[in-house]
């Protein structure tokens, strides 16, 4: 209910119609382990408006990646309902592109061919080949198009995975700690890059991150999860216009609030 109240269009009124409307309604999930079920999600209720940028924060192992897998359609939820634009999510679909926590590049494909995979899979590679180079340039890896993944550093591999997602023109971009392995400078640059890309394209974003600043700098709304099984513990609205400034006092205030919710305020 809280979530519904928060629904707003993205601030730059770009092509908001291209963003997916994701509804997560009372979704619970568990894994069947040898010694009984392991509950991972507990009645999660979340609504992502078309074109909205939502970040998910929570302790490690609480179930964030699991939630993203459900949204992607890779697994059915044990209970509850997931909808995209009112239709149930039953299987993966290229309108919802996922960048996994692990870059998972195909080692037998060059960087270029890895990035081209989505276009190739949908049979539009010939028509849209130029997008591959654009996406590589966007993540700063144009020169590495011809190399194989084992020649890349961890951060470079993560940027390739990002490029592989961005070529596809998704309605929803699902990002599972996509910047986790980057050095702090590249990371800041990629954050701004992603935000401006999102503003230009108008897709919706679900971003999982461990980095409170990153969540607050990028997202319009930050959802804070509890320990496993994940429940929505709180929700922060970042009422700041883009482009944002990292030094803004409002951000510092929100950060204090978020860390408090995560139980870390004592150290700050």
């Amino acid at each position: 209910m809280v979530a519904l109240a928060q629904v707003r269009p993205p601030q730059p009124v770009a092509s908001a119609s291209t963003g997916a409307h994701i509804q997560i309604h009372r979704v619970s999930h568990h894994f069947d382990l040898k010694d009984g079920p392991l509950p991972v999600l507990d009645e999660v209720e979340l609504d992502v408006a078309p074109g909205e940028f939502v970040a998910l924060l929570g302790p490690s192992g609480c179930g964030k990646s699991t939630l993203l897998r459900l949204v992607a359609g890779l697994e059915p939820a044990a209970a509850g309902e997931l909808l995209q634009d009112g239709r149930p999510i039953l299987s993966p679909d290229p309108s919802r592109i996922v960048v996994f926590q692990d870059p998972t590049l195909y080692p037998w494909r060059t960087v270029r061919d890895n990035v081209a995979l989505g276009l190739q899979a949908r049979g539009v590679l010939r028509r849209e080949a130029h997008r591959v180079e654009q996406a590589l340039a966007l993540v700063g890896l144009g020169e590495f198009a011809g190399v194989h993944p084992h020649q890349l550093s961890g951060g470079m591999a993560q940027r390739v995975a990002l490029a592989r997602a961005l070529v596809n023109d998704p309605a929803l971009l699902v990002l599972d700690e996509p910047l986790g392995k980057l050095d702090s400078l590249t990371r800041l640059a990629m954050q701004s890059e992603l935000v401006s890309l999102w503003q230009r394209s108008g897709f919706s974003v679900l971003l999982v991150t461990h980095d409170v600043e990153e969540a607050l700098f990028m997202a319009q709304r930050v959802i804070v999860f509890s320990e496993r099984p994940a429940r929505i513990k709180a929700e922060l609205t970042v009422d700041l216009a883009y482009p944002r400034h990292r030094g803004s006092p409002r951000l510092a205030e929100l950060r204090h609030q978020a860390l408090g919710l995560l139980g870390l305020d004592a150290t700050w």
Binding site: S91, R96, F100, T104, R164
Partner: peptide, 13 residues
């Protein structure tokens, strides 16, 4: 690696 399949499927393969 199962993730290879997941990535391909989410990309519309």
């Amino acid at each position: 690696n199962r993730n290879y399949y997941d990535v391909a499927r989410t990309l519309g393969a």
